[in-house]
Write a protein that binds this DNA or RNA. Structure first.
Lengths: 201, 201, 201, 201
DNA sequence: GATGAATGAGTCTTCATTCAT
DNA sequence: AATGAATGAAGACTCATTCAT
């Protein structure tokens, strides 16, 4: 029987994670010291270490936690029947990202950029992220198949290529909005709709 | 050693920059120590510091140098008359990125991800990158106007939204290809062409 | 290790200060490295830095600590009623300096010389020292007034000038004794008494 | 036959020394880098090193040169016949120090404080300075003998003690004026005269 | 003789992690 | 369980000095 209840443990974990997020967003992953996080969390160093074995573990959790949550929301959108048409799908997913971002002291876009950079030197993180994005793209490929089958795409369309294009668009939304900050989900939807409405090249 | 020739100075700078790139790609910006770069460059610490006043300066140069070069190539593509149609433009720019990446010991995509993460905590870098991407997007907006004027887009299309969509696609290509590694410029072109060939939503 | 007791903290501080004094006296302020002090203190670098935020802070404390203590002793001597006559006062204050100096691993005279040199480039230290010496001189001026009032000085004597002369004598004792090393407090008292016993110029 | 004339060499030496003085006064002996001096001198590093073999050598020369010059002036004052009475002598020597100080970009008082501090860790410098001050004090002792013989001091006065008192006064003038900056040679003379004019203790 | 680029040991400082209390 | 003082390896950067040109 644990000395501390499971809920309390979970609450503490979240408390630490929130502290980590706010520090990471402000200073980046490496310029944030464990002490920064300890102070932001209001706990002691020892306490933090009893929840996360190392800074790497904390980084992993910080980057991965939100990715997992977002992933579930995206999966739900992809499973809609009939599938949302391309422009609406892009708009919708971008909106999910934006809503996530709107949360208290937590900016998914910034965390994503930090995570991508970190993934280059952290194999575990890289593989985990790869898994999420590969799964996401697989879902998009299936959606593209459904678009083709329902006539939204021509019969000779290549679902994998379409999925790659759509994934790129969504990832690029994250980058563009983090760097330039003036992109709305509607812009993406409108832009894609305009392109689809044009003459076939 | 009397005053060194300008070419030699430039060569040394490049030598250091190459060393920095290869270290940064392997270990990230902050996990790379100046000593790593010093050793990789084959010079002494003092020599490196006589070319770049600080690690921050070196990071700035490492991230910025290629962005400038790429920017020029992209601008040339955007100025083609008549403008390349959307799918070909996206394919072409992605191809430029991929070619840049092909260079020895230098991967533009990885450097870009590192740079974006760093830009969050480095104002000077952020503003510089912002300038490049804003200029790029401006060029895309003008291209979208030309597409509309030439009938490739409907008369009521919104060039800024189209530009945002296209920029997102290209930036997302960088991310997707760095993280998943199996995206070719042709995929993007094909995917966009397929979408444009579909029924208008 | 839970919160340490205040006494222990103070003891540690003193331990570091003693280490710093012994190093500074041997090698000077700048030729002493923090590592020298760390080793002399028997603590770790991190521990030393948790007591003094920087080398400058440590220098400030090393120079200032004793000045404060001495200052109190001198003030007590100056407040004696009736005031000590000039030659005895000078002898007495010089003796205070010499006694301070006699302490283990700490030579006030050497620290003073180092502090004066450092004060030239360290504004905070300069202002702090200035405060001490100005206060000391003010006390001497008041004493000179009392000498004049009690007839030890002629009615037209200038107390500020007398105070400057006496302060110079005491400061010069520090210098002379640090550089030549063969001056006793009694010498100063005797010398001044001899001068005062001479024919009026 | 030297490639460069002796005058030119001497001029260069002085040029470097002036540069060193101005740097040392501003930043202290150790916080001044050879590069600071090189730049201030307008010469190249190699050139500076051809005149002074090391930084230590340059420090030694910077501290010693002026001490030697001052020493000659002081000796002349001490040899006056009949000897200046104590208060006038002190005023006169202090005036010499003050005049020396008034020179272009050179402050004898500041250099003296730096030199005293440095002497603690530099044996050669220490011995050289000791020589100067010991010689100065010997001269003062002889002067005190003459004062006693001429009746300015009582027959049982102790010339060595008087010399120590006078030396302390002059050295202390340097300190006080460097730290507090509001002491004039006249103040010392007046203060000593007032003391000598008082009742014998 | 003169130059100033290059060296590399050494400096101050930080910080992830541990463990005595 | 919790604390936070302590560790010490490693980091960024400097600078006295040399020597190829």
């Amino acid at each position: 029987m644990p000395r501390i209840s499971d809920e309390r443990r979970a609450a503490r974990r979240t408390q630490i994670l929130e502290a980590a997020w706010s520090c990471f967003q402000k200073d980046g992953l490496h310029a944030t010291s464990m002490d920064d996080i300890v102070r932001a969390s209001g706990l002691s160093a020892g306490a933090v270490y009893s929840y996360f074995a190392s800074k790497e573990e904390l980084i992993f959790a910080a980057v991965t936690t939100s990715l997992g949550a977002l992933s579930g929301l995206v999966a739900a959108v992809l499973e809609a029947t009939p599938p949302l048409p391309p422009d609406q799908l892009v708009r919708r997913i971008a909106a999910l990202v934006a809503e996530f971002t709107a949360r208290e002291s937590y900016d998914l876009r910034r965390i994503a950029l930090l995570g991508w950079a970190e993934a280059q030197r952290n194999e575990r993180l890289r593989e985990t992220m790869r898994g999420y994005y590969a799964g996401f793209r697989l879902g998009l490929t299936e959606t593209a198949v459904r678009w083709r089958d329902s006539g939204l795409l021509p019969p000779d369309a290549a679902p994998p290529a379409v999925a790659k294009l759509v994934l790129a668009t969504v990832l690029g939304f994250v980058v563009q909005s983090a760097l330039l900050g003036d992109v709305e989900p509607e812009d993406l939807g409108r832009g894609l709709a305009d392109l689809m409405a044009g003459d076939r090249p």
